[in-house]
Nucleic acid binder design. Sequence first.
DNA 1: GATGAATGAGCTTTCATTCAT
DNA 2: AATGAATGAAAGCTCATTCAT
Lengths: 197, 197, 197, 197
Amino acid sequence: MARMTKEERKTTIISAALQLFSERGFYITTIPDIAKKVGMSVGNFYNYFNSKDILAKELIIYISEYLGRNIRVINEKESSTEEKIYEIVSMYFNMADEEPEMIEYFLRVYLSNREIFGDGCEGMLCVSPFVTEMMMFFNDGVECGKLHNQDFFSAFGLFMGYLGGMVFLFGEKILPEPLEWYKESISQNIYNALKTR
Amino acid sequence: MARMTKEERKTTIISAALQLFSERGFYITTIPDIAKKVGMSVGNFYNYFNSKDILAKELIIYISEYLGRNIRVINEKESSTEEKIYEIVSMYFNMADEEPEMIEYFLRVYLSNREIFGDGCEGMLCVSPFVTEMMMFFNDGVECGKLHNQDFFSAFGLFMGYLGGMVFLFGEKILPEPLEWYKESISQNIYNALKTR
Amino acid sequence: MARMTKEERKTTIISAALQLFSERGFYITTIPDIAKKVGMSVGNFYNYFNSKDILAKELIIYISEYLGRNIRVINEKESSTEEKIYEIVSMYFNMADEEPEMIEYFLRVYLSNREIFGDGCEGMLCVSPFVTEMMMFFNDGVECGKLHNQDFFSAFGLFMGYLGGMVFLFGEKILPEPLEWYKESISQNIYNALKTR
Amino acid sequence: MARMTKEERKTTIISAALQLFSERGFYITTIPDIAKKVGMSVGNFYNYFNSKDILAKELIIYISEYLGRNIRVINEKESSTEEKIYEIVSMYFNMADEEPEMIEYFLRVYLSNREIFGDGCEGMLCVSPFVTEMMMFFNDGVECGKLHNQDFFSAFGLFMGYLGGMVFLFGEKILPEPLEWYKESISQNIYNALKTR
DNA sequence: GATGAATGAGCTTTCATTCAT
DNA sequence: AATGAATGAAAGCTCATTCAT
């Protein structure tokens, strides 16, 4: 194995685990599976992560930070609220298309196996970078008069629930069209739902 | 044990399994757990369901039929599309509040552990009673000119993704208000998103 | 089910069990399998045989008596020793061909799962009708000067080992020719091995 | 536990399993039994053999190779066909006497539980080293004019069936004399059966 | 840091047998 | 005699985690 810092090695593991967890699920993926994929011994794996659960938690933090950064970039642009909605939808769908592991992990591991994320990830603790950024987007929209001022979580549930639902249908190969095809209309639907009345 | 027909006994098991699966997840719930909860021996459990996987599949069918029936009742009413949206939201949130097992199972077991529902439940096979009824609702709305004619799955994803998202936030105790409180605004959001433009 | 005496019913069970045991083996065949094949409930099975082991023992006795009767018929004929050898070989191979259950049971269940036939079937207790008749054949052959006077078990081992071996090869579909084809040469081999020197 | 290579450890398991399987049979011997006999945990057993069935198959290959080697040594001697027959009989009976596990396994596990040896051991696949060597012996005998030229399987069935039958009777403690005592006469019987006419 | 053999608890599933009806 | 639901012990196998090297 190439010489690597401890941090780099952790990233390698994160990457392999992400792929396996998102494809097969948390319980079906074994530590030997992950170690094998990384090309590392089982024993050594535990030098980097103290348990399977801890790995799962670090994974969701990693993803949340990644998503958060992406949304921040959009937030910082000069575009209109409508455009930002489109850009978030677009970014999300592109990820789902091109590197689906993160979003799949989010939907299928994090959201569904809450027992794993009990200690230290209660509530939204582990996804706050991402949630915070969504909150920013929403507040900006309200402030500039474009979005109806309502309970944040209602807006958040709409936005993320909608996108998650579509990605799920996409993953199940149920959608008649590619994700790309839906970007426009979905952005419109979201805007219509959230805009000032 | 009380005198019961075989069918009644199956229902008892379904009920117990639903509770455990939805609370703890599929992989953490064991057959001994279920048998114990029913007050039955492990061996006898297998006289009713040939495997854990088959139980899981029967469960989702059971739920889908239940949800389908509930939505059908709403569909058959004389109310307006706006009212129907509210009634579906209301029914869904009431279930999430009062008998959360079904919806939790739907969200946390069915949607997330697709490997279990491979054989015989591919795509939407096992949830078609429910999906069909949602399709009915949507088609009616389009026909009577209230809803914008778009790809069904986009509308479906919005509706169910939104509700699922809210129930998730509710389950995580993240919502500042009770579900009841959101019914009105969420119905409005959904209507605004889907209505004729 | 047709009206039957207890004895007739036992025979029905014996027949079904024989088929299943000989095809699948003792441990793989379950009591429910047998009951189903007979068209009888599991519980009722135990009114006829107190245990799976006891059934196995009654089966081997049944077979041994059947084989014994067949050999006795041959023994009582006026034919020469050579002819009798041929007739025994022929009878054995015909059985293996047309109703293989008994011989398969003998070879694959009785001979190989001695743990089952411990209590009450030690040594040759349960197959004595058959062994006795083979002893008769051999003694007659020695008395009339045709067969070399040697230890009975050596002759018995040759005769039955040979036939069993051939039937095994036949069952495994390894033999290039049908059993029929071997009758003559095998009888000759046996005679050459046992005849007076 | 003593220091051992992985291969040595496998041999230890093979040895223990052979003993248990041959004594008690395949189905009655459990993996915990084997693990205990080796002084190893159940889980660790599976680091060496992926399943009970695979162990059974490796066992028969191991035995077949062992027997094959032993017969090859005899085949390569300069002795006459008669002498070789005696030596094979002698080798076989010595094994049955001194280290009966292999032959017992062959007779009681391999020959009788064919369902286990389905995948990968069909026909004579797993015993070909042994069968091949017997074929060599027979062909040599025919070529040098000592043995009657007949179907190989008929000769093979006689030879191995006979020996198997005697070992079975021996194992059941039915033989009035020790195996040793029979070597001479049995070799003669076999030679008389197979020799040129 | 790195290895992978070793552990052991625990899972799903099977089945001979019993027993209330 | 007949039914088949019920029992419970035990089997094969898995896997997170540890630990000697």
